[in-house]
Design a binder for these strands. Structure first.
Lengths: 115, 115
DNA sequence: TTAATGTGAAACCAAATGGTTTCGTATTTG
DNA sequence: CAAATACGAAACCATTTGGTTTCACATTAA
């Protein structure tokens, strides 16, 4: 099996703004649930559920330390997102190229009008 | 107002696999709804609704031609996604660096064991 | 040992989501 | 003009989602 045996999709995991925020919060530190939930207006349980979705997508890793569960970012699954995006970069570059060509063609038309 | 006056979020728009597929389909061609929906096992109406979500997020542009409505990719909003991703690239690079350092440290330990 | 703390599971709920079928309306085409 | 085509709006439905409160269970502290 490949790298993406995740129960939850990366795309779906990052669809929620709270979860995106969680990823940033946990990007440079490992934190227990209670501390994490202090950053949000929702209940600790709700935060816990978001963390589960992220964990299912492989975006976050949990580690039990005593009675705490500490979470931290696991950025690898974001590669899938990057790959997906890469396909489209081709098109937005084309778009910019097309725009440039259009502007040039437009100038030509302007020149012709001036004849 | 900035560039993202979209009713629908880009992140949410690409969360659905059918919509991601639509974006690829429309990346190199402008197509009317009926033709598009032939590529999917769901109803034309369902496809139409997905297209609306994509249009709300600015990811697709519609153009009426006679009785047809033709859709094509509008890749610009994907920049937001790219920006968001960029933040995390820092961390996965760190991760790789950390891994490299760990491997080196491990070698050192191996060497020590050999003493 | 008893009390306090950190957490997830469960049951529940309202709203959003992804789908359907039916209908009305423009626009071609015969 | 009449029939066919292309489409979106509406009403409806089942499931998922994001949230809550309550409860049970470990683990640590008194």
């Amino acid at each position: 099996m490949g790298a993406s045996s995740a129960k939850h999709d990366v795309f779906q995991a990052i669809a929620d703004p709270t979860r995106r925020s969680l990823l940033k919060l946990l990007s440079n530190q490992e934190l227990p649930v209670t501390v994490i939930s202090e950053h949000y207006p929702i209940s600790r349980t709700a935060v816990s559920k978001h963390l589960r979705v992220l964990a299912d997508a492989g975006l976050v890793k949990e580690r039990k330390v005593g009675r705490e569960t500490r979470y931290k970012l696991e950025p690898e699954p974001l590669f899938e997102l990057k790959d997906w995006l890469q396909y489209f970069e081709l098109f937005w570059e084309n778009k910019l190229t097309a725009l440039r060509l259009f502007v040039e063609a437009d100038s030509d038309i302007e020149n012709q009008k001036k004849k």
